[in-house]
Design a binder for these strands. Structure first.
Length: 276
DNA sequence: CCACGATCCTGCTAGC
DNA sequence: TGCTAGCAGGATCGTG
């Protein structure tokens, strides 16, 4: 599940691969589900001939600057976006291919078909609605933001707050669990019950885990690959996610798995006590 | 305003 | 061995 570190790794590896400066010479949409806006004919026509000037990221969105137009891409669960040699055999579930001016291709594949592209209008309208509502990047999240959100949503579990992209952009299920373990805060704790000290620990946990995951180029369970097709390495350093029954790396208590905010949730019952 | 469950989708796997 | 039901989850939508 690509979250901030994975999406940022894709961005960096696309740039390292030399994507910026290349033109899109042809567009092939193999599955219309992967183009969210506009219709596939307009999408192809309006992208063709444009030069890719750069690649930015906002939350989990990749934003390709295409000669005055912004092409937004969301990988959701299983999306991959990578630079490929044209003669490379097609992976199954490849839905969009952008042929590039140096003979290579920018390919998008997505097994579950949740992800896809939005070609924003020249005035910036028709972008993904969530993009306009995103909260701050985690590095910009202030303690005041956190305190305000905690009092506004006093009754809801802290994990749902971390997953809310309008509160902070870029966290998903894996890093929400990892951040809360680092903070020593149970994911089911209500926002209103967190002390100022605990709020600080949560913010620190979020920032620390995202930085470390980025340093290891993201987490690959099954699907994630970067812009060069390479997997990440952070899965070896996860402390709770996917480690049900395995000893906590801090205290050796078996990691528990439960359901909070409708998501599979991993935690250490000892490091993250349920009550205060 | 906020929370929660269902929904989308396919591949993997636990269980019979 | 082979089948099926259940699970995985980011974001959205309808309901309470």
């Amino acid at each position: 599940m690509p979250e901030l570190p994975e999406v940022e790794t894709v961005r960096r590896t696309l740039l390292e691969g030399g994507l910026a400066g290349l033109a899109i010479v042809a567009v092939r949409v193999l599955h219309p589900d992967a183009v969210h806006w506009p219709d596939t004919a307009r999408f192809s026509r309006e992208l063709q001939g444009r030069r890719i000037d750069g690649v930015r990221r906002r939350g989990k969105f990749l934003l390709l600057d295409c000669g005055g137009r912004t092409l937004a891409c969301h990988l959701r669960m299983t999306g991959r976006l990578w630079l490929s040699a044209a003669q490379e055999a097609h992976l199954s579930h490849t839905h969009v291919v952008l042929e590039l001016s140096d003979g290579r291709e920018l390919r998008f594949r997505d097994v579950r078909r949740f992800g896809g592209f939005t070609l924003m209008e020249p005035d910036g309208s028709m972008g993904p609605p969530l993009l306009a509502r995103l909260g701050p990047e985690p590095e910009e999240l202030s303690l005041a933001d956190l305190a305000r959100a905690c009092s506004r949503r006093a009754g809801s579990p802290v994990k749902s707050l971390l997953l809310d992209q309008a509160f902070v952009a870029g966290l998903g299920n894996i890093y929400a669990d990892e951040a809360l373990h680092r903070a020593g805060v149970h994911p089911g704790r209500t926002c209103g019950s967190l002390s100022t000290q605990e709020q600080g620990a949560v913010r620190r946990g979020v920032r620390t885990v995202l930085r470390e995951a980025l340093r290891h180029r993201g987490t690959t369970f099954l699907d994630f690959r970067d812009g060069a097709g390479e997997p990440g390495a952070f899965q070896a350093f996860l402390r709770v996610y996917g480690r049900e029954g395995l000893p906590c790396r801090r205290c050796t208590t078996p990691i528990a798995k439960t359901r909070i905010a409708g998501r599979g949730t991993h935690l250490c019952p000892r490091c993250q006590p349920e009550g205060e």
